[in-house]
Write a protein that binds this DNA or RNA. Structure first.
Lengths: 204, 204
DNA sequence: ATACAGTTTGACCAAACGGTCAGACCAATG
DNA sequence: CATTGGTCTGACCGTTTGGTCAAACTGTAT
């Protein structure tokens, strides 16, 4: 009677995969059961309804995405290194959990009512707050220009996340091949870091 | 026997609204019929199947979004004004057609197979090409730093579009109220313009 | 009036959907 | 061996889904 028996785990993993791939409405309970290798009735045995299963999946992914950005940002690292690590961390995570990220974004917009319920199950948003504070300090120190930390972080996340979410659009509009696009992604961390540092660093 | 009879138009508009709101799987034919004020059978009379109707909707929106960014970019405007107008244009459009943009992004990722069919029905992607060329020129002139025009445009679009698509996430992570977020959106054009110009302008 | 092509619909269909339930299965305990 | 409690399922249910079709309804030209 573990919190995660083998079957429950298999179901949950299958549900994550399929929900991320096809969204809430596009995912059928039978498909989850098939992928998990159990009967549809067992689904309802472990998770009472589709909505409950869905909510748990979203909660799990959101929590994972938020807490995953944490770590290794010490107080004594200079602003350049801080931003570089931040960008690198965000980009790698978004690239690794591409579909999951897009899924959470999309479904959170559609089912805004669920958000209130989901928030309570999530622990740490403190990491971001920490970074916001550090940026505020740097600004007072005069190493970076006057910019609201929120604006700066949004800019950074935007530049990291957008190419990953907009791949088909970018390829279409820019007439890019798969190869060219992959090159673009590979140089992306450097591009965003340079761009950001040039934008906010106060030069002597 | 117009290309758009009154009924056909009503159906198409209803379809756009509902598809944008609920996605492909979340939109039911009966709901479209109800919203258009006609019978479900009439839907199939004008558009043979749900897939065909869906494809036409995506095609129409994608074409609209792409061609809508055009206009008023003359050759003699300086780089600062060019970027400011570009950012302003993108941001206003994305803000105006927020749901449509998100919808096209999401469904284009899911149904990547349809993209090949859809591309053929779209005329002008030339506007972007024009801007890419102009940026290349400025770079050679030495007014802006060495950055691939594609990277620059992606950065700009990213910073414009991301806050609009990630509203719930941002509010959650940054602990923002509706009011604070609206303020953030209102200053966004200025923020992105300043940020971008500082990042790419060669200073004397 | 009649004929005709385009439009619109109620009634209908097979398939798929989320969900239920009685009962089979299976270890572990007495 | 018998009982018990958790696990698992085939069969089933009511509803909803995308799609069809013959028939009714328009207006217009003959």
């Amino acid at each position: 009677m573990d919190a995660f028996s083998s079957s429950e785990e298999k179901i949950f993993k299958a549900a994550i995969d399929l929900f991320c791939e096809n969204g809430f409405d596009g995912t059928k309970m039978q498909a989850i059961a098939d992928k998990a290798g159990i009967s549809k009735a067992s689904l309802h045995y472990y998770f009472r309804s589709k909505d409950r299963l869905f909510k748990k999946v979203v909660q799990n992914l959101l929590s994972m995405l938020i807490t995953n950005v944490t770590g290794e940002i010490k107080e004594d690292t200079c602003i350049e290194e801080l931003l570089q690590k931040l960008i690198s961390g965000y980009f790698d995570m978004f690239r690794k959990f591409r579909k999951q990220t897009f899924f959470v974004f999309a479904e959170l917009v559609k089912h805004q009512k669920l958000l209130a319920d989901i928030i309570q199950g999530i622990d740490k948003i403190a990491v971001i707050q920490e970074i916001l504070l550090r940026l505020q300090k740097e600004r007072e120190k005069g190493t970076i220009i006057a910019i609201a930390p929120e604006d700066l972080i949004i800019n950074i996340i935007a530049m990291c996340i957008y190419p990953l979410m907009a791949e088909p659009m970018i390829k279409l509009i820019m007439s890019m091949s798969d190869n060219e696009f992959e090159q673009l992604l590979n140089r992306r961390k450097q591009v965003v870091t340079d761009f950001t540092l040039r934008a906010i660093l106060v030069r002597s």
